[in-house]
């Protein structure tokens, strides 16, 4: 078990009830309700500005809802406190890496913040998984977008989070890396993680997801089960 799981807090579902989020007069989310369960791979689709990043930020406890509640198991974030953050992994579009630090230093820094007893060993294993072992001591600013993406994914999963939130995880990945990521996501599902993945790359996630949600103008709907290719179902949902 990971060192971070020394905290007793854990959960097997996330329940969002009637959540709205406003930025001034602009409404990013409007009465969103959903339940995510352990072992599920859930996709989040929607046009630009639909509120996908806001929903991910909200589930990551980085954004407070203007109205409504989010429960991790049966606990609100305020009750779960710091221990909740040890169970969350968030890969945002901007990757959250320090460009001046090396790949190894980035992973060891975040490993240290998670209180690992052996951040160096954990970082070395993560670099192997990312296929970056030979570039471990190079500053991240010299990496391509795909390499940064692989590194940031390992940083996100370094502490074995229960809830994995991924914003456009396929960005910049070549075909082989995309396939590796898809396989990794399936493994996460089998490990009873809760995965919510926002993407525009429908080919990459075709057949991968257990459920697909669509956000449009802050409102959430669920796509019907697999009776047609994902892109067609998505277009039909937007046309409604």
């Amino acid at each position: 078990m990971p060192a971070s799981s020394a905290s007793s807090f854990d959960f097997d579902s996330v329940t969002v009830s009637g959540v709205s989020r406003h930025y001034g007069r602009r409404r990013a989310l409007s009465g969103v309700s959903l339940t995510l369960r352990a072992g599920e791979l859930v996709g989040l689709l929607g046009p630009n500005g639909a509120g996908k990043s806001t929903l991910l930020g909200l589930l990551a406890t980085l954004i407070q809802p203007s109205r409504g509640t989010v429960l991790y198991g049966d606990q609100p974030p305020s009750a779960a406190g710091v221990a909740l953050r040890a169970r969350l992994g968030f890969l945002p579009h901007d990757l959250q890496l320090y460009a001046e630090l090396t790949a190894r230093e980035n992973l060891e820094f975040f490993g240290g913040l998670h209180g690992f007893h052996d951040p160096a060993g954990r970082a070395a294993a993560a670099l192997e998984r990312a296929g970056l072992a030979d570039r471990a001591d190079d500053p991240v600013q010299g990496f391509s977008r795909g390499m940064r993406q692989r590194l940031a994914l390992e940083r996100t999963l370094l502490h074995h989070p229960r809830l994995v939130l991924l914003d456009e995880p396929f960005t910049g990945l070549d075909e082989a890396s995309g396939r590796a990521l898809a396989a990794r996501l399936q493994t996460l599902g089998r490990e009873q993680r809760i995965v919510l993945l926002a993407t525009h790359d429908m080919e990459a996630v075709e057949g991968l997801l257990d459920r697909v949600l669509v956000l449009r103008e802050g409102r959430l709907t669920e796509l019907p089960a697999r009776d047609a290719p994902l892109r067609e179902r998505y277009r039909a949902a937007l046309a409604r």
């Binding site: 990551a60 710091v82 953050r85 968030f90 945002p92 959250q96 890496l97 913040l113």
Partner: peptide, 12 residues
């Protein structure tokens, strides 16, 4: 690169 949010998400 939004590193601040990464820091704020750490369990500390």
């Amino acid at each position: 690169h939004d590193a601040l949010r990464g820091l704020l998400l750490a369990p500390v």
